[in-house]
Each structure stands twice: as structure tokens, then as C-alpha cells.
């Protein structure tokens, strides 16, 4: 049961490692960008999970609702910002990939490096 209770944290760790492994092992630059997105999404999941309390709702006070349990909204706000940062990084990264393709005619990292060495 404890294992299942930590399910989200396991997914966080697995996604993080999938992202990191792909970043290191793949030569294709677009695949690298996708890996980076997975890597960052893992962290988003981690923050959202940490703020969730069992039975907790959005922190909106209602008159006469009695005792309420709220989830912490702050990590969610932080992740909203982090998602924006992630999108900007993705946009810039893909733009660089496009420029690389224009200049080298390939998006394989090892081929680009080989062309640089021979130049």
C-alpha cells in the first residue's frame, strides 16, 4: 500500500530518468528537445503531487461550508511559471534546431560535430 501511496513520486522518478537517458543517448536534436520536455514535466508532476492533500479542494472559502481541507495552491502557481519557462525554452531550442538544419542540412548531433571538425 505504501508503494501505491507514493505512486506519483515513482512516476516522477521514472519520467525524470527517461528524459535524462534520452537526452544523453539520442543524437537527433528534436528527440533531445522532446526528452527535455519529458524531463521538465516530471518536475511539474513532482510539485503538483507535493501540494495535493487527500480530500483537499481548491482554497476558496465558502460561507457555511463547515470545516474544509485545502490543497496548497502555491506549488501550482510556481509550476504555472515553470511551464511558461519550459515553453520558452522549447521554442528557443526548436528555433535553434531549425537554424542548424538550415546551416548544416542535418539535425543529427554527431553529423554536425563531424562537419565542424572537418571544416
Amino acid at each position: 500500500m505504501k508503494l501505491l501511496g507514493l505512486f506519483n513520486y515513482w512516476v516522477f522518478a521514472v519520467l525524470l530518468m527517461i528524459g535524462l537517458y534520452t537526452l544523453i543517448s539520442k543524437q537527433n536534436l528534436v528527440k533531445k528537445m522532446l526528452a527535455l520536455a519529458i524531463f521538465q514535466s516530471a518536475v511539474f508532476l513532482f510539485f503538483i503531487t507535493m501540494s495535493k492533500i487527500e480530500g483537499g479542494t481548491a482554497p476558496i472559502f465558502r460561507a457555511g461550508a463547515g470545516e474544509q481541507v485545502f490543497s496548497n495552491p502555491l506549488p501550482q502557481v510556481l509550476i504555472l511559471t515553470a511551464i511558461v519557462v519550459g515553453i520558452s525554452t522549447m521554442a528557443l531550442g526548436l528555433a535553434i534546431v531549425v537554424r542548424l538544419y538550415e546551416e548544416y542540412g542535418t539535425i543529427e548531433d554527431d553529423e554536425i560535430l563531424a562537419m565542424d571538425r572537418n571544416a
Binding site: K32, F39, A82, I96, R99, L100, I112, L113, D116
Partner: peptide, 21 residues
Amino acid sequence: ALSAVFKYLIIGTIGATFYLI
């Protein structure tokens, strides 16, 4: 500079994400 900066972008983002964790 493009391939250099792509590497910097990947490594820099990994660094920042580790910091965020």
C-alpha cells in the same frame, strides 16, 4: 555557435531543473 549553444541550452536547462527539484 549554433551547435555550441544547443549544447549549452540542454545542459543549462538540466542544471536549472535540478535546482528546481
